[in-house]
Structure formats: C-alpha cells, structure tokens
Computed example of a mutant assay.
Amino acid sequence: MDRIKAAHPDLPPADPALRIRARGTLSAPVGRFEPYTRAHEHDGWDIPEETRPLRTEVAIERPRRAITRNDSPDVPFAQSINPYRGCEHGCIYCFARPSHGYLGLSAGLDFETKLIARPEMPEVLERELRSPGYRPQVIAIGTNTDPYQPLEASMGVMRRVLEVLAAFDHPVGIVTRGAGITRDLDILGPMAARGLVHVGVSVTTLDAGLARRMEPRAPVPATRLRVIRALSEAGVPVRVMAAPMIPGLTDHELDAILQAGAGAGARAASMLLLRLPHEVAPLFEDWLRREEPGRADKVLGRLREMRGGQLNDPRFGTRMTGEGFWADLLRRRFHLALRRCQLGQSLPALDLSRFRAPPRPGDQLSLF
C-alpha cells in the first residue's frame, strides 16, 4: 500500500480499491477546469475490501473535422491530425496530458485509461481534402498523442487515414514510438518512393528498465531501433528523436541514442528538452520521487536552471530548448553528436506537387 501513495503533496492518493499495473502515474487529479475536487476518505471500518484492476476504457467520438490548423511560431507544421485522444503508452512526461482536461477528465490516470477513438476520421479527412478551397500542406500525425498506441491494432484508424492520404498523394510526417507502424510498410514504402512521407521515431533512453518505468506501455528501446531499421530498409526517411531529454536523468545518453539511431538507418536526428505544462509538472515530480528518489532533486534543480527558475517555461522560442548554461551545453553536445554520427538536422522536403483528388465512381474524367 505504501507504494501507491502520492509523493507530491498536491496530488491525491490513488483509489485504494484499484490495482494499478503498468501505468505511468498512480494518481487521477481533477482536471484544471473542474469546479470540484474528489478525495478518497477512510470510512472507519477496517474491513478488507476486494480490489479491482484498472482497465482501459475506449469511447467513440464522431469528429466534425479531421485537420487541425496550427500557427505556433516554433512548431514546424501548419496542420495535423489526431486519430485518438489520450494515450495508453502512459509516458509520465507527456506534454499532451493536459489536453484531457478539455474533456472534463484527468491528466493523470484518465489520460492513460480513458481513451477516445475517432473511427470516422478517414471519411471526414477525405471530405476535407476534396474541398475546392483546400491547398495542400504537410500533415503531421503523432504530434499530440501516438497514432500507433496499442489501441490502433484493433481500431485501425491510422491505417485508413494513411490509405486516404496515399490515394490523394498527400504528404505526411509521422511521429511515433509505436512498433505498429511496421504493419503499414506496404503503404509507407510506396509513399516514400513518391516523396510523400517521413517518420520520426522517439527514443528517450536506451535503458530498458528506465523506459519500462517511465513509458510503461510503449515498446522497449531495442524495439524502437528495430522499427527505425525496418522503416529505413523500406525506403522511408527516418529521424531519430532524442525527445524529451531529461536533464540529470537521460541527457547523458544523448550521444549514444544518436549513434544507435544512425546505426539502425536513421538519416537525421532531433532533440527536445523536457516540457512540463500545467498538470504534468506535479505528476512528473511525483513519479521522480517514487521511482528515482536519489536523482529527483538534481533533475528538478537542473530543469529549473534551464527554465528560468520554474519547472516549465511556455514562451515561444524557449519552451522547446530551454536557456542558460546547461541548455547551451546540451545543444552543443547535440550538434557535435550530429557530426560524429553523420546525421542531418532535417529530412528531405516532401513533395506537395503530386496532390490531386482521385476520381470517384461516376465522376467525369478529364481527357488531358
């Protein structure tokens, strides 16, 4: 029972009636938009109660639109698609956790266990791509939650999205840590041959034990390197993403991660500093003090030095990189490792010129 107590004073303890296994967090704090809080109180009866396992729940959402527009100045894409809300990978540091608050759900356990699937997304996407006013730009997928989380194996939303994009010859950039992407090599390989796709694979650490505790339902690091190799062998341009780098915990692995990615066939690399927006900061601190108590103060102190004294800095221009001595040192190490591993910072530009709406049954075909 001691192990499920929250270490952070602002987090409520886990429900004692739940058996929590392979989850990133043990807490379900109320979302920041909710007017009420919840707390589990002892009823005074010392009678053993039967516990129940915490299971993943899936709800279905009918999206009104597929493509989300973005105008953030420090994000390299203008539009994106999210086939799922929430992510069963359960990465404790995930910056997307606060997005569950807009659904009235917790950024903690709810984000990992109360998932939203959007099976009608491919049909909505096709309708938007056929709109007379649509102008093609690269669509990014996986920039919020992972499109190849375990749920994709049964739902197949991402595969059908890819089928639509391939039919329209529409360029797409994918970010994932899920091994399920290799299922779709029959689509991705031909798209890559037409200059329509590249993939970023996130490798946060090479330590399988740390990965299992920090990213409990994501593939182990060795599997992610095999994913890079499989994509590369299929002709898909791949970027190894050392993201997020956690100062005092994983930053010493930066060079090794890039070297391993290059050895598996990656052509480019990127690095992002850990971000802890809104509810993620107390959740991550709670995890650190439970799982890495000997390094917790160092990690949090170093992060504050790189974030202007705070655990998070939301300002454009610095939120992805940090500032100060340690942030500059990390960037210099990254650029040196790029040269040593002969990796670029970017992949070849994708081809926008091929985009065209495929004819539907009954359409009048052009003679020219």
Score class of each variant (00 low, 15 high):
Ala6Thr: 11
Asp10Leu: 14
Pro12Lys: 05
Ala17Glu: 12
Arg21Leu: 14
Ala22Tyr: 10
Arg23Phe: 03
Leu26Pro: 00
Gly31Cys: 13
Arg38Cys: 10
Ala39Glu: 15
Glu49Cys: 12
Leu54Asp: 04
Ala59Trp: 13
Glu61Trp: 11
Ile67Gly: 04
Thr68Cys: 12
Asp71Met: 09
Pro73Phe: 03
Asn82His: 13
Gly90Tyr: 02
Tyr102Arg: 13
Leu105Ile: 05
Glu112Ala: 08
Arg118Val: 00
Pro119Lys: 07
Val124Ile: 15
Leu125Phe: 09
Leu125Val: 08
Glu128Ser: 10
Arg130Gln: 10
Ser131Asp: 15
Gly133Gln: 09
Arg135Ala: 09
Gln137Cys: 05
Asn144Glu: 12
Met158Glu: 11
Met158Asp: 06
Ala167Lys: 11
His170Asn: 04
Gly180Met: 01
Gly180Leu: 12
Gly180Asn: 01
Asp186Glu: 13
Asp186Arg: 10
Ile187Trp: 00
Val197Leu: 10
Val201Pro: 02
Ala208Lys: 13
Arg213Ser: 09
Arg217Ala: 14
Pro219Ile: 03
Pro219Leu: 05
Pro221Tyr: 05
Leu225Thr: 02
Arg226Asp: 08
Ala234Phe: 05
Ala234Lys: 05
Ala234Pro: 04
Val240Asp: 04
Met241Gly: 01
Gly248Ile: 06
Asp251Met: 10
Ala264Gln: 00
Ala264His: 01
Gly265Ala: 06
Gly265Lys: 00
Met271Ile: 14
Leu276Gly: 06
Pro277Tyr: 08
Leu283Val: 11
Arg290Pro: 08
Glu292Asn: 07
Gly294Met: 09
Ala296Glu: 02
Lys298Pro: 00
Val299Met: 08
Gly301Glu: 14
Gly308Met: 03
Leu311His: 10
Thr318Gly: 12
Trp326Tyr: 15
Ala327Gln: 07
Arg340Ile: 06
Cys341His: 11
Ala349Ile: 03
